[in-house]
Design a protein around this nucleic acid. Sequence first.
DNA 1: TGAAAACCCTACTAAATCGATAGGGTAAAA
DNA 2: TTTTACCCTATCGATTTAGTAGGGTTTTCA
Lengths: 136, 136
Amino acid sequence: MMLSKKTKYGLKALTYLAKVSDNQPIQIAEIAKHENISQKFLESILLTLRRNGLLGSKKGKGGGYYLIKEPKDILMTTVMRVLEGPIAMVPCVSLNFYEKCDDCPDEGECSVHKLMLQVRDSALEVYRNNTLEDLL
Amino acid sequence: MMLSKKTKYGLKALTYLAKVSDNQPIQIAEIAKHENISQKFLESILLTLRRNGLLGSKKGKGGGYYLIKEPKDILMTTVMRVLEGPIAMVPCVSLNFYEKCDDCPDEGECSVHKLMLQVRDSALEVYRNNTLEDLL
DNA sequence: TGAAAACCCTACTAAATCGATAGGGTAAAA
DNA sequence: TTTTACCCTATCGATTTAGTAGGGTTTTCA
């Protein structure tokens, strides 16, 4: 139930980019140093963000990573799904990764299902109501 | 970010006890069979619940586990904390297990902190608004 | 044009956690 | 006094996490 470091670092990196850059590329090393993150680990996280359309990158001297959207257009639902995976705590209440429980004969009767549905909805509401801009 | 099987099974066991029993002791084997749970694993979970004041037990023939409170008096906040641990996804927003992040110089400025505070509050609200009775 | 800067990719690993399994010990009721 | 059922400890394979290592490859600028 803990937030992974991957997500934590990813969020911090996005925040840093949103703060300092006017879409100038920022080098990995700079972000890593400023946010106290292992550079190599951060590298893999930024790569994930880029592959999922949240960041752009530029190679060569003067290169780096930059936001390709406005902070106000980057929803936390997207960020969390990309970095942390499904928002639901059990697959049987997941919107995007639904899976039936093999041990549970009737979802409608399942107390875990009932509770986790509410938890998912409340988390989703938080993520939907927060853009990167809101966190600056 | 997944719910552990421990919590899932624990919740199911509590629900089962609330449904079938008028505070008669129910044997582990019966719960395990009915809810499709490994008996030995369930045993350790029930023990945890007993140690934390959520269940009572009776030894010997005719023994088993039973609820020691009314379902309407068993809050999900308690159940989740006992089985799953802290509700917060980062220690720096935990009410009961607060810890400062070593990499984060200023919590007030931290985007992760800001977001996770909201997530914790919304989860807490759900858990506070649900008793065992509500899940039956 | 060539070398340095910076991204890109793969593979490995130590540590921790999870979900169980095994095997017995102990108390209580019939 | 024997059976029943809870109680407790230890172990273990699989998976995940949080990196580390090391070497590409591409691009840009001098």
